[in-house]
Design a protein around this nucleic acid. Sequence first.
DNA 1: CAGCATGTAA
DNA 2: ACAGTTACATGCTG
Length: 846
Amino acid sequence: MPPKRKGTGPAGGRPSKRVASGVSTPKSMVSDDDYSEGDESSEMLSEREAPTKYDSVVKKYQPSTYQKPQNAKSYGDAASHLFKPKRDFFSEPLKPDHHLRPLWISPHNGKVVLETFAQGFKQAQNFLINIGEPQSRTTNMHEYTISPNSLFAAISVGLTEQDIIRDLELFSKTKVPQNIIDFVREVSQSFGKIRLVLKHNRYFIESQDTAVLQRLLRDPVISSCRVQDSEELRTEKAAQKGGLIIPGTKDAAGVREAVAQAQQAQKREGDDDESDDEYGGKEAEKDMTDFLREEEDDDEVDQVHSFEIDGENIQLIQEHCSTKLGLPLTEEYDFRADDANATLDIDLRPNVQIRYYQEHALSKMFGNGRARSGIIVLPCGAGKTLVGITAACTVKKSAIVLCTSAMSAVQWKEEFKKWSNINPEDIAIFTSGEKEKLNQKAGVIICTYSMVTQNTRRAHDSKQVMDFITSREWGLMVLDEVHVVPAEMFRRVTNRIKTHSKLGLTATLLREDDKIKDLNFLIGPKLYEANWLQLSEEGHIARVQCAEVWCPMTTEFYSEYLQAKTTNKRSLLSTMNPRKYQACQFLIDYHEKRGDKVIVFSDNVYALEKYARGMTKPFIYGDTSQREREIVLQNFQQNDAVSTIFLSKIGDTSLDLPEATCLIQISSHYGSRRQEAQRLGRILRAKRRNDEGFNAFFYSLVSKDTNEMYYSSKRQAFLVDQGYAFKVITHLKGMENMKNLAYNTQQDRMDLLQDVLLQSETAGDVEDIKDDLFSDRNVARQKKKGGVRRQAGTLSSLAGGEDMAYMEYARGSNANKALAKPRDAFFRKEDRLKERKKKAAQALLD
DNA sequence: CAGCATGTAA
DNA sequence: ACAGTTACATGCTG
């Protein structure tokens, strides 16, 4: 039996650490969902949705004999029910050779636990990645959930119902429960029935089964989206399938020349050329590839039927089919048979070899010779861009790449030029800053989400480019940082751009809201998710030591903390905790001496400035201009004198700093798991990662007995599930001996406290009186929005306010004299603000 | 081109 | 669950 564990500590207390050392425990093998209070942290593309037909299917997991203790709530604390006698979930006898089989399958909730030390682990893991959602992958135990969506993904990748049941039986230590088998049956039979097909700029729902289509046409939502004057059902010959080789693999390198002619003749024989030594004797991968190939000819039907639907309502239809009807629309693009769209001359450069997991991921996408829409999850620094580019090189049709910022658009273009032989004229950037034209029949265009989703106020030239984008058909759409797509605005892209296939890429398929599941119908199933731990063991990403440093609050700060009314003031006090400052100072000093390059993250801009100025280090935040950012970043990378930089949350995403090897977090956004993971991602591509014994460091500084403790544990959930172990450090050895430790006297700490309180007031209530003059723009904006413009206070209160604010800024500009080279730039903002305020005050007096 | 206003994400 | 904060992209204006 796996060891028992429960995620909640004593009532009202902080949830206990999931993993305190390298030893891991599965998250909920013994606890049914009903038991685990607030433990939905690892729920990704899961089954929890609005009630649907599928709930009844999922419900079958819960046998009627199993009941939650009726008095679960009446124990009075969160833990004691765990010690009540419980039903043994594994009453089923073990198979005689169970020690050869690595899997525990719970009959109650679709959860599966995999022993990493057992024989056959690798094969079982590859199988589970296909059919389940990884929930937690720690050193000794991996836990997966089998849900309708995960099964859809498995089937879309080519597994059959029989494969799944056969292999579950093969790996399981006990006989596979009948309800699990029934569940797999039921789900697989409804998947893949209907497909969404784009032809000549028109959308069709296609199926081999006319009965299913008739059923859809009777559905009010679907029928209202049908193009009315089109023929009811069209019938045509089904397309042929065949083998395919993904560029960048060894096979491809060997046979690239021959491919063009061979492709036609090559059907199944072609597949046999596949050399297995690519995988270094990993039989598991071979099994996997076999799975993918099996589905070829069996149920080949000659005819397909379809009806046309309105392209404007694609999203509505996809959502309806997937969540209401339980018949997800799959998208597969038979790009080699498409001669309506021009072929793009693009290939990977001859010497480019993609890594095995990239190939693995792509083989899921192109497993049956067509391009399936779906999502690939790879950690930061593991080469997501190259996966996207290789996909484009495989499809060889016009492609559109969407990314979140103009900066990453430029990076994508660079990568395209670096990895592929694309003609520079065939690739264009479309952002607010740059509007390159694409004249060729086929090409690659890279743009930002907002450029595509904005409807109002569009400059003339960008309207032109938009028309170009919307009017044509795209072979492939690559969605970078695909976890942003469910956002209200960004999800429009799938409606607006007509594309045959979509590939979503992300490192963190996580949102703190529950919209992440929408990606199932917006983009497609998750095709592949890499194992972070495995990649770092193999040296593809850096090994990281994670630690949470507990800093006690000083008495002054803690008593203020307890009195503070707003969460804002509280969080400010806990990030400004002098002991935390000292810990930060000590860690920076320690790591600089080791020769590390350190990044310090703070969400709070005030704290960012205060820390950075106090330690005379450069910092970057939102208002730092582009040029200044470049100067700082360049110095950080090349100048040995600049070993530490401070970043606000601009550094969370898409900042490429391969020099950085140590990361310290002093303030963060509540319990955002995505932020935590992405920050960690900043050091995963460390240049030195393959040095002997190299380790990157990730510290989270947490003020003891504050909200930070709680948030910190939430934030870590994702990384813990990826197998990272957070060490708790309560005492930094040698800190008390450090010279020049700041805030070592009572007086200094009181001064700091005063400063913090002043700050929290200027940012808080006092603001109300003088908001017209001194507020930041959002407060002003909100006031305007509500139509309530507040009367300015008396002149004296104004003057007082102004003086206070002025003092702040004046102090800032004095302090900056001590700073090194690129400093001046940092403080320009204050000057601007000062000017603005003066002007505003003047205007008011007039 | 800088600066501003607006909309949006997380 | 909610509001608040920070950052970004974009188009308009002088």
